[in-house]
Nucleic acid binder design. Structure first.
Lengths: 215, 215
DNA sequence: CATGAAATGAGAGTAGCTCTCAAAAGATGG
DNA sequence: CCATCTTTTGAGAGCTACTCTCATTTCATG
Protein backbone atom coordinates (compact mmCIF):
# COMPACT_ATOMS: atom_id res chain seq x y z
CA UNK A 1 0.00 0.00 0.00
CA UNK A 2 2.07 2.97 -1.25
CA UNK A 3 1.79 6.20 0.60
CA UNK A 4 1.97 8.68 -2.23
CA UNK A 5 1.14 11.83 -0.30
CA UNK A 6 3.98 13.60 1.50
CA UNK A 7 3.45 13.29 5.20
CA UNK A 8 3.07 16.71 6.56
CA UNK A 9 4.36 16.20 10.04
CA UNK A 10 2.36 18.98 11.57
CA UNK A 11 3.94 18.70 14.89
CA UNK A 12 3.80 22.32 15.81
CA UNK A 13 2.21 22.71 19.20
CA UNK A 14 -1.40 22.75 18.17
CA UNK A 15 -4.13 25.10 19.34
CA UNK A 16 -6.96 23.35 21.14
CA UNK A 17 -8.94 23.06 17.95
CA UNK A 18 -6.70 20.64 16.12
CA UNK A 19 -5.29 18.35 18.78
CA UNK A 20 -2.65 16.98 16.41
CA UNK A 21 -4.78 14.75 14.21
CA UNK A 22 -2.73 11.59 14.40
CA UNK A 23 -1.96 9.29 11.50
CA UNK A 24 -5.26 7.49 11.69
CA UNK A 25 -7.33 10.62 11.31
CA UNK A 26 -5.20 11.89 8.50
CA UNK A 27 -5.59 8.65 6.59
CA UNK A 28 -9.32 8.74 7.01
CA UNK A 29 -9.49 12.21 5.57
CA UNK A 30 -7.37 11.12 2.66
CA UNK A 31 -9.50 8.10 1.96
CA UNK A 32 -12.64 10.19 2.08
CA UNK A 33 -11.24 12.61 -0.39
CA UNK A 34 -9.91 9.86 -2.62
CA UNK A 35 -13.39 8.37 -2.84
CA UNK A 36 -14.90 11.70 -3.64
CA UNK A 37 -12.30 12.51 -6.23
CA UNK A 38 -12.70 9.13 -7.88
CA UNK A 39 -16.45 9.56 -8.00
CA UNK A 40 -16.15 13.06 -9.33
CA UNK A 41 -13.87 11.94 -12.16
CA UNK A 42 -15.87 8.86 -13.08
CA UNK A 43 -19.15 10.74 -13.11
CA UNK A 44 -17.71 13.34 -15.40
CA UNK A 45 -16.42 10.61 -17.72
CA UNK A 46 -19.37 8.25 -17.79
CA UNK A 47 -22.29 9.87 -16.08
CA UNK A 48 -23.76 9.11 -12.71
CA UNK A 49 -25.81 6.01 -13.36
CA UNK A 50 -23.13 4.30 -15.38
CA UNK A 51 -20.70 4.72 -12.51
CA UNK A 52 -20.80 1.80 -10.10
CA UNK A 53 -19.55 1.54 -6.58
CA UNK A 54 -17.06 -1.08 -7.66
CA UNK A 55 -15.54 1.29 -10.18
CA UNK A 56 -15.32 4.03 -7.60
CA UNK A 57 -13.68 1.65 -5.14
CA UNK A 58 -11.19 0.50 -7.72
CA UNK A 59 -10.15 3.98 -8.75
CA UNK A 60 -9.94 5.18 -5.17
CA UNK A 61 -7.89 2.09 -4.35
CA UNK A 62 -10.11 0.92 -1.56
CA UNK A 63 -12.55 -1.95 -1.26
CA UNK A 64 -16.25 -1.50 -2.02
CA UNK A 65 -16.98 -2.15 1.64
CA UNK A 66 -14.90 0.83 2.56
CA UNK A 67 -16.82 3.10 0.24
CA UNK A 68 -19.98 2.29 2.15
CA UNK A 69 -18.21 2.80 5.41
CA UNK A 70 -17.48 6.35 4.46
CA UNK A 71 -20.74 7.20 2.72
CA UNK A 72 -24.14 5.69 3.48
CA UNK A 73 -25.38 5.96 -0.09
CA UNK A 74 -23.96 6.59 -3.51
CA UNK A 75 -25.74 9.92 -3.67
CA UNK A 76 -24.04 11.09 -0.52
CA UNK A 77 -20.64 10.81 -2.11
CA UNK A 78 -21.65 13.56 -4.44
CA UNK A 79 -23.71 15.64 -2.08
CA UNK A 80 -22.39 15.56 1.46
CA UNK A 81 -20.37 18.54 2.45
CA UNK A 82 -21.28 19.64 5.88
CA UNK A 83 -22.92 22.87 4.91
CA UNK A 84 -25.56 22.72 7.59
CA UNK A 85 -23.33 23.87 10.46
CA UNK A 86 -22.04 26.70 8.28
CA UNK A 87 -25.52 27.97 7.59
CA UNK A 88 -26.45 27.73 11.23
CA UNK A 89 -23.35 29.66 12.21
CA UNK A 90 -24.20 32.35 9.71
CA UNK A 91 -27.69 32.51 11.07
CA UNK A 92 -26.55 32.92 14.63
CA UNK A 93 -24.11 35.58 13.57
CA UNK A 94 -26.98 37.94 12.80
CA UNK A 95 -28.53 40.19 15.42
CA UNK A 96 -31.52 38.53 17.01
CA UNK A 97 -33.86 41.44 16.40
CA UNK A 98 -33.30 41.55 12.68
CA UNK A 99 -36.38 40.68 10.63
CA UNK A 100 -36.47 37.00 9.87
CA UNK A 101 -36.80 37.59 6.16
CA UNK A 102 -33.74 39.81 6.11
CA UNK A 103 -31.74 37.33 8.09
CA UNK A 104 -32.63 34.54 5.71
CA UNK A 105 -31.68 36.66 2.75
CA UNK A 106 -28.27 37.27 4.20
CA UNK A 107 -27.76 33.68 5.30
CA UNK A 108 -28.76 32.18 1.99
CA UNK A 109 -26.74 34.57 -0.11
CA UNK A 110 -23.68 34.23 2.03
CA UNK A 111 -24.02 30.46 2.35
CA UNK A 112 -24.34 30.06 -1.37
CA UNK A 113 -21.42 32.33 -2.02
CA UNK A 114 -19.19 30.43 0.38
CA UNK A 115 -20.18 27.08 -1.04
CA UNK A 116 -19.53 28.27 -4.54
CA UNK A 117 -16.24 29.98 -3.85
CA UNK A 118 -14.86 26.95 -2.10
CA UNK A 119 -15.24 24.70 -5.12
CA UNK A 120 -17.11 26.11 -8.10
CA UNK A 121 -16.75 22.95 -10.15
CA UNK A 122 -18.27 20.87 -7.41
CA UNK A 123 -21.13 23.32 -6.97
CA UNK A 124 -21.91 23.13 -10.65
CA UNK A 125 -21.63 19.37 -10.77
CA UNK A 126 -24.02 19.08 -7.86
CA UNK A 127 -26.74 21.20 -9.34
CA UNK A 128 -26.22 19.51 -12.65
CA UNK A 129 -26.75 16.10 -11.06
CA UNK A 130 -29.71 17.41 -9.12
CA UNK A 131 -31.30 18.33 -12.42
CA UNK A 132 -30.39 15.14 -14.22
CA UNK A 133 -30.56 12.36 -11.63
CA UNK A 134 -33.76 11.81 -9.68
CA UNK A 135 -32.01 9.88 -6.94
CA UNK A 136 -29.62 12.73 -6.31
CA UNK A 137 -32.43 15.22 -6.30
CA UNK A 138 -34.33 13.11 -3.81
CA UNK A 139 -31.37 12.80 -1.54
CA UNK A 140 -30.85 16.52 -1.72
CA UNK A 141 -34.43 17.12 -0.69
CA UNK A 142 -34.04 14.78 2.24
CA UNK A 143 -30.99 16.56 3.52
CA UNK A 144 -32.82 19.80 2.92
CA UNK A 145 -35.55 18.77 5.26
CA UNK A 146 -32.99 17.85 7.89
CA UNK A 147 -31.62 21.33 7.53
CA UNK A 148 -35.19 22.51 7.79
CA UNK A 149 -35.59 21.02 11.22
CA UNK A 150 -32.58 22.91 12.44
CA UNK A 151 -33.70 26.12 10.82
CA UNK A 152 -37.03 25.72 12.55
CA UNK A 153 -35.32 25.91 15.90
CA UNK A 154 -33.39 29.00 14.95
CA UNK A 155 -36.34 30.69 13.34
CA UNK A 156 -38.52 29.74 16.25
CA UNK A 157 -36.10 31.46 18.61
CA UNK A 158 -36.03 34.60 16.55
CA UNK A 159 -39.71 34.91 16.00
CA UNK A 160 -40.59 33.88 19.52
CA UNK A 161 -42.64 30.95 18.36
CA UNK A 162 -42.71 27.27 19.04
CA UNK A 163 -40.19 25.73 16.63
CA UNK A 164 -42.48 22.75 16.25
CA UNK A 165 -45.54 24.79 15.37
CA UNK A 166 -47.11 24.34 12.01
CA UNK A 167 -46.48 27.97 11.18
CA UNK A 168 -42.75 27.87 11.70
CA UNK A 169 -42.40 24.57 9.93
CA UNK A 170 -44.40 25.68 6.94
CA UNK A 171 -42.56 28.94 6.72
CA UNK A 172 -39.21 27.17 6.85
CA UNK A 173 -40.01 24.45 4.38
CA UNK A 174 -41.61 26.74 1.86
CA UNK A 175 -38.49 28.83 2.04
CA UNK A 176 -36.29 25.83 1.45
CA UNK A 177 -38.60 24.58 -1.28
CA UNK A 178 -38.17 27.87 -3.05
CA UNK A 179 -34.42 27.73 -2.67
CA UNK A 180 -34.35 24.20 -4.00
CA UNK A 181 -36.23 25.32 -7.05
CA UNK A 182 -33.83 28.18 -7.51
CA UNK A 183 -30.91 25.80 -7.53
CA UNK A 184 -32.69 23.62 -10.07
CA UNK A 185 -33.45 26.63 -12.22
CA UNK A 186 -29.83 27.66 -12.11
CA UNK A 187 -28.71 24.18 -13.10
CA UNK A 188 -31.28 23.83 -15.86
CA UNK A 189 -30.11 27.05 -17.41
CA UNK A 190 -26.50 25.97 -17.57
CA UNK A 191 -25.37 28.05 -14.58
CA UNK A 192 -25.47 31.13 -16.74
CA UNK A 193 -27.31 33.36 -14.33
CA UNK A 194 -25.72 34.94 -11.33
CA UNK A 195 -26.90 32.78 -8.50
CA UNK A 196 -26.96 35.65 -6.05
CA UNK A 197 -29.29 37.58 -8.30
CA UNK A 198 -31.56 34.58 -8.62
CA UNK A 199 -31.63 34.29 -4.86
CA UNK A 200 -32.73 37.86 -4.54
CA UNK A 201 -35.58 37.35 -6.97
CA UNK A 202 -36.53 34.18 -5.13
CA UNK A 203 -36.68 35.90 -1.79
CA UNK A 204 -38.72 38.71 -3.29
CA UNK A 205 -41.31 36.20 -4.43
CA UNK A 206 -41.29 34.47 -1.07
CA UNK A 207 -41.80 37.73 0.73
CA UNK A 208 -44.32 39.40 -1.54
CA UNK A 209 -45.86 36.63 -3.56
CA UNK A 210 -46.52 36.98 -7.26
CA UNK A 211 -47.38 40.63 -7.21
CA UNK A 212 -44.82 43.08 -8.52
CA UNK A 213 -42.52 42.78 -11.47
CA UNK A 214 -42.97 39.83 -13.77
CA UNK A 215 -40.93 37.71 -16.14
CA UNK B 1 -41.31 -2.89 -27.02
CA UNK B 2 -44.37 -2.59 -24.85
CA UNK B 3 -44.20 0.78 -23.27
CA UNK B 4 -46.30 2.59 -20.75
CA UNK B 5 -49.93 2.40 -21.60
CA UNK B 6 -50.71 -0.33 -24.04
CA UNK B 7 -53.29 0.94 -26.44
CA UNK B 8 -55.98 -1.63 -26.33
CA UNK B 9 -58.09 -1.31 -29.41
CA UNK B 10 -61.28 -0.25 -27.78
CA UNK B 11 -63.25 -0.78 -30.84
CA UNK B 12 -66.77 -1.22 -29.61
CA UNK B 13 -68.68 1.78 -30.82
CA UNK B 14 -68.33 3.56 -27.58
CA UNK B 15 -69.47 6.68 -25.84
CA UNK B 16 -66.04 8.15 -25.22
CA UNK B 17 -66.16 7.75 -21.46
CA UNK B 18 -66.90 4.13 -20.57
CA UNK B 19 -66.49 2.09 -23.70
CA UNK B 20 -67.73 -1.13 -22.10
CA UNK B 21 -64.37 -2.09 -20.71
CA UNK B 22 -63.88 -5.57 -22.13
CA UNK B 23 -62.56 -8.50 -20.19
CA UNK B 24 -58.93 -7.60 -20.58
CA UNK B 25 -59.34 -4.14 -19.15
CA UNK B 26 -61.42 -5.44 -16.30
CA UNK B 27 -58.76 -7.97 -15.41
CA UNK B 28 -56.09 -5.36 -15.45
CA UNK B 29 -58.01 -3.19 -13.08
CA UNK B 30 -58.58 -6.14 -10.81
CA UNK B 31 -54.91 -7.07 -10.81
CA UNK B 32 -53.93 -3.52 -10.05
CA UNK B 33 -56.27 -3.42 -7.14
CA UNK B 34 -55.23 -6.84 -5.92
CA UNK B 35 -51.63 -5.70 -5.80
CA UNK B 36 -52.54 -2.57 -3.96
CA UNK B 37 -54.75 -4.41 -1.49
CA UNK B 38 -52.07 -7.00 -0.83
CA UNK B 39 -49.51 -4.30 -0.23
CA UNK B 40 -51.82 -2.37 2.01
CA UNK B 41 -52.52 -5.44 4.15
CA UNK B 42 -48.92 -6.58 4.35
CA UNK B 43 -47.65 -3.15 5.23
CA UNK B 44 -50.15 -2.88 8.03
CA UNK B 45 -49.11 -6.29 9.33
CA UNK B 46 -45.36 -6.06 9.01
CA UNK B 47 -44.39 -2.55 8.13
CA UNK B 48 -43.18 -1.18 4.84
CA UNK B 49 -39.56 -2.24 4.79
CA UNK B 50 -40.26 -5.75 5.95
CA UNK B 51 -42.67 -6.24 3.10
CA UNK B 52 -40.98 -7.55 -0.02
CA UNK B 53 -42.17 -7.56 -3.58
CA UNK B 54 -42.24 -11.35 -3.52
CA UNK B 55 -44.64 -11.34 -0.60
CA UNK B 56 -46.85 -8.84 -2.32
CA UNK B 57 -46.83 -10.90 -5.49
CA UNK B 58 -47.67 -14.05 -3.60
CA UNK B 59 -50.59 -12.56 -1.74
CA UNK B 60 -51.92 -10.84 -4.83
CA UNK B 61 -51.54 -14.12 -6.70
CA UNK B 62 -49.43 -12.74 -9.47
CA UNK B 63 -45.79 -13.11 -10.34
CA UNK B 64 -43.21 -10.61 -9.13
CA UNK B 65 -42.64 -9.57 -12.72
CA UNK B 66 -46.24 -8.57 -12.97
CA UNK B 67 -45.99 -6.36 -9.93
CA UNK B 68 -43.30 -4.35 -11.67
CA UNK B 69 -45.34 -4.23 -14.82
CA UNK B 70 -48.07 -2.43 -12.95
CA UNK B 71 -45.96 -0.21 -10.72
CA UNK B 72 -42.52 1.15 -11.52
CA UNK B 73 -41.35 1.14 -7.91
CA UNK B 74 -42.45 -0.28 -4.61
CA UNK B 75 -43.24 3.19 -3.34
CA UNK B 76 -45.61 3.80 -6.19
CA UNK B 77 -47.83 0.95 -5.10
CA UNK B 78 -48.58 2.91 -1.99
CA UNK B 79 -48.60 6.38 -3.44
CA UNK B 80 -49.93 6.46 -6.96
CA UNK B 81 -53.48 7.55 -7.30
CA UNK B 82 -53.80 9.92 -10.16
CA UNK B 83 -54.57 12.96 -8.14
CA UNK B 84 -52.78 15.34 -10.46
CA UNK B 85 -55.51 15.51 -13.10
CA UNK B 86 -58.08 16.05 -10.37
CA UNK B 87 -56.21 19.01 -8.98
CA UNK B 88 -55.76 20.45 -12.42
CA UNK B 89 -59.43 20.10 -13.15
CA UNK B 90 -60.28 21.84 -9.90
CA UNK B 91 -57.90 24.59 -10.78
CA UNK B 92 -59.40 25.16 -14.17
CA UNK B 93 -62.86 25.17 -12.68
CA UNK B 94 -62.14 28.47 -10.97
CA UNK B 95 -62.71 31.80 -12.66
CA UNK B 96 -59.56 33.01 -14.32
CA UNK B 97 -59.65 36.42 -12.69
CA UNK B 98 -59.70 35.07 -9.15
CA UNK B 99 -56.61 35.89 -7.13
CA UNK B 100 -54.05 33.13 -7.42
CA UNK B 101 -53.80 32.72 -3.68
CA UNK B 102 -57.55 32.28 -3.33
CA UNK B 103 -57.64 29.80 -6.14
CA UNK B 104 -54.93 27.73 -4.58
CA UNK B 105 -56.68 27.78 -1.25
CA UNK B 106 -59.81 26.41 -2.82
CA UNK B 107 -57.98 23.85 -4.94
CA UNK B 108 -55.93 22.51 -2.09
CA UNK B 109 -58.75 22.28 0.38
CA UNK B 110 -61.07 20.67 -2.10
CA UNK B 111 -58.40 18.33 -3.45
CA UNK B 112 -57.49 17.19 0.04
CA UNK B 113 -61.11 16.72 1.00
CA UNK B 114 -61.81 14.61 -2.07
CA UNK B 115 -58.74 12.47 -1.56
CA UNK B 116 -59.63 11.92 2.05
CA UNK B 117 -63.30 11.18 1.52
CA UNK B 118 -62.57 8.65 -1.14
CA UNK B 119 -60.50 6.45 1.15
CA UNK B 120 -59.69 7.83 4.59
CA UNK B 121 -57.68 4.78 5.61
CA UNK B 122 -55.48 5.07 2.58
CA UNK B 123 -54.96 8.77 3.14
CA UNK B 124 -53.86 8.11 6.68
CA UNK B 125 -51.61 5.22 5.70
CA UNK B 126 -49.95 7.40 3.10
CA UNK B 127 -49.12 10.24 5.39
CA UNK B 128 -48.03 7.76 8.01
CA UNK B 129 -45.63 6.15 5.58
CA UNK B 130 -44.44 9.55 4.42
CA UNK B 131 -43.48 10.28 7.98
CA UNK B 132 -41.90 6.93 8.70
CA UNK B 133 -40.27 5.79 5.46
CA UNK B 134 -37.72 8.04 3.79
CA UNK B 135 -38.09 6.29 0.45
CA UNK B 136 -41.80 6.95 0.40
CA UNK B 137 -41.30 10.54 1.38
CA UNK B 138 -38.77 10.99 -1.37
CA UNK B 139 -41.04 9.48 -3.93
CA UNK B 140 -43.81 11.74 -2.78
CA UNK B 141 -41.61 14.76 -3.18
CA UNK B 142 -40.70 13.70 -6.67
CA UNK B 143 -44.29 13.35 -7.74
CA UNK B 144 -44.96 16.64 -6.04
CA UNK B 145 -42.46 18.37 -8.26
CA UNK B 146 -44.07 16.79 -11.30
CA UNK B 147 -47.32 18.28 -10.14
CA UNK B 148 -45.40 21.49 -9.67
CA UNK B 149 -44.51 21.66 -13.32
CA UNK B 150 -48.14 21.39 -14.26
CA UNK B 151 -49.19 23.93 -11.71
CA UNK B 152 -46.62 26.31 -13.10
CA UNK B 153 -48.37 26.28 -16.43
CA UNK B 154 -51.74 26.93 -14.86
CA UNK B 155 -50.44 29.60 -12.53
CA UNK B 156 -48.49 31.16 -15.34
CA UNK B 157 -51.68 31.46 -17.36
CA UNK B 158 -53.56 33.04 -14.51
CA UNK B 159 -50.94 35.52 -13.50
CA UNK B 160 -49.99 36.36 -17.05
CA UNK B 161 -46.42 35.27 -16.55
CA UNK B 162 -44.05 32.92 -18.23
CA UNK B 163 -44.68 29.51 -16.64
CA UNK B 164 -40.97 28.81 -16.87
CA UNK B 165 -39.92 31.98 -15.14
CA UNK B 166 -38.08 31.73 -11.89
CA UNK B 167 -40.81 33.66 -10.15
CA UNK B 168 -43.62 31.30 -11.07
CA UNK B 169 -41.55 28.25 -10.35
CA UNK B 170 -40.44 29.49 -6.97
CA UNK B 171 -43.93 30.52 -6.03
CA UNK B 172 -45.31 27.14 -7.02
CA UNK B 173 -42.68 25.05 -5.34
CA UNK B 174 -42.68 26.98 -2.13
CA UNK B 175 -46.41 26.48 -2.04
CA UNK B 176 -46.05 22.77 -2.57
CA UNK B 177 -43.22 22.61 -0.07
CA UNK B 178 -45.48 24.16 2.51
CA UNK B 179 -48.26 21.73 1.69
CA UNK B 180 -45.89 18.83 1.96
CA UNK B 181 -44.85 19.96 5.38
CA UNK B 182 -48.48 20.29 6.37
CA UNK B 183 -49.13 16.71 5.41
CA UNK B 184 -46.11 15.61 7.40
CA UNK B 185 -47.24 17.62 10.38
CA UNK B 186 -50.66 16.04 10.19
CA UNK B 187 -49.14 12.57 10.03
CA UNK B 188 -46.68 13.22 12.83
CA UNK B 189 -49.48 14.28 15.09
CA UNK B 190 -51.48 11.14 14.56
CA UNK B 191 -54.00 12.70 12.19
CA UNK B 192 -55.69 14.34 15.11
CA UNK B 193 -56.01 17.81 13.65
CA UNK B 194 -58.55 18.74 11.06
CA UNK B 195 -56.58 18.76 7.89
CA UNK B 196 -58.63 21.53 6.35
CA UNK B 197 -57.90 23.78 9.30
CA UNK B 198 -54.21 23.04 9.00
CA UNK B 199 -54.37 23.93 5.33
CA UNK B 200 -55.89 27.27 6.16
CA UNK B 201 -53.17 28.06 8.63
CA UNK B 202 -50.59 26.96 6.09
CA UNK B 203 -51.95 29.22 3.41
CA UNK B 204 -52.07 32.11 5.84
CA UNK B 205 -48.38 31.69 6.51
CA UNK B 206 -47.63 31.40 2.82
CA UNK B 207 -49.54 34.56 2.07
CA UNK B 208 -48.50 36.73 4.97
CA UNK B 209 -45.32 35.22 6.29
CA UNK B 210 -44.65 34.84 9.99
CA UNK B 211 -46.36 38.01 11.06
CA UNK B 212 -49.72 37.75 12.72
CA UNK B 213 -51.01 35.23 15.19
CA UNK B 214 -48.56 32.73 16.58
CA UNK B 215 -48.52 29.23 18.03
C1' DC C 1 -62.05 -22.16 -34.75
C1' DA C 2 -57.90 -20.04 -36.41
C1' DT C 3 -55.01 -16.20 -36.17
C1' DG C 4 -52.95 -12.11 -34.14
C1' DA C 5 -52.10 -9.26 -30.09
C1' DA C 6 -51.51 -8.57 -25.42
C1' DA C 7 -50.63 -10.12 -20.65
C1' DT C 8 -48.23 -13.30 -17.77
C1' DG C 9 -44.66 -16.24 -15.54
C1' DA C 10 -40.19 -18.01 -15.09
C1' DG C 11 -35.65 -17.07 -14.67
C1' DA C 12 -31.29 -14.94 -15.17
C1' DG C 13 -28.77 -10.74 -14.27
C1' DT C 14 -27.36 -6.07 -12.21
C1' DA C 15 -26.39 -2.97 -8.58
C1' DG C 16 -26.94 -0.79 -4.23
C1' DC C 17 -26.51 -1.86 0.36
C1' DT C 18 -25.86 -4.81 4.86
C1' DC C 19 -23.40 -7.95 7.77
C1' DT C 20 -19.85 -10.90 9.42
C1' DC C 21 -15.28 -12.22 10.27
C1' DA C 22 -10.53 -12.47 9.94
C1' DA C 23 -6.34 -9.87 8.62
C1' DA C 24 -3.81 -5.48 8.64
C1' DA C 25 -2.37 -1.17 10.59
C1' DG C 26 -2.17 2.56 14.01
C1' DA C 27 -1.96 3.56 19.05
C1' DT C 28 -0.06 2.55 23.60
C1' DG C 29 2.58 1.01 27.54
C1' DG C 30 6.57 -1.38 29.08
C1' DC D 1 11.67 -2.86 20.13
C1' DC D 2 8.11 -5.76 21.43
C1' DA D 3 3.42 -7.06 23.09
C1' DT D 4 -1.10 -5.88 23.32
C1' DC D 5 -5.29 -3.50 22.42
C1' DT D 6 -8.17 -0.98 19.26
C1' DT D 7 -9.59 0.69 14.93
C1' DT D 8 -9.79 0.17 10.08
C1' DT D 9 -9.87 -2.61 6.21
C1' DG D 10 -10.86 -6.32 2.73
C1' DA D 11 -13.14 -10.38 1.26
C1' DG D 12 -17.19 -12.38 0.55
C1' DA D 13 -21.80 -13.98 1.30
C1' DG D 14 -26.51 -12.39 1.22
C1' DC D 15 -30.73 -9.57 0.55
C1' DT D 16 -33.79 -6.90 -2.28
C1' DA D 17 -35.42 -3.72 -5.66
C1' DC D 18 -35.51 -3.56 -10.35
C1' DT D 19 -34.56 -4.90 -15.55
C1' DC D 20 -34.72 -7.87 -19.56
C1' DT D 21 -35.71 -11.76 -22.31
C1' DC D 22 -38.41 -15.41 -23.98
C1' DA D 23 -41.70 -18.93 -24.04
C1' DT D 24 -46.53 -19.67 -22.68
C1' DT D 25 -51.06 -18.46 -21.71
C1' DT D 26 -55.15 -15.66 -22.34
C1' DC D 27 -58.22 -12.59 -24.60
C1' DA D 28 -59.94 -10.44 -29.05
C1' DT D 29 -61.58 -10.88 -33.72
C1' DG D 30 -62.94 -12.39 -38.35
Amino acid sequence: MPDNEPMTAARTSSPADHPQPGLRERKKTKTREAIRAATYALVKEQGYDATTIDQIAERAEVSPSTVFRYFPTKEDIVLTDEQDPILLALLRSRPAREAVADTMRYVMREGARMGFDEDPDMARLRTHLMVQVPAVRSRMMESMSVLGRMLCVAIGERSGRDPDSLEVRVYTMSLLGGLMETALYWGEHGHEDDFGALLDRTLDVLEHGLSKENT
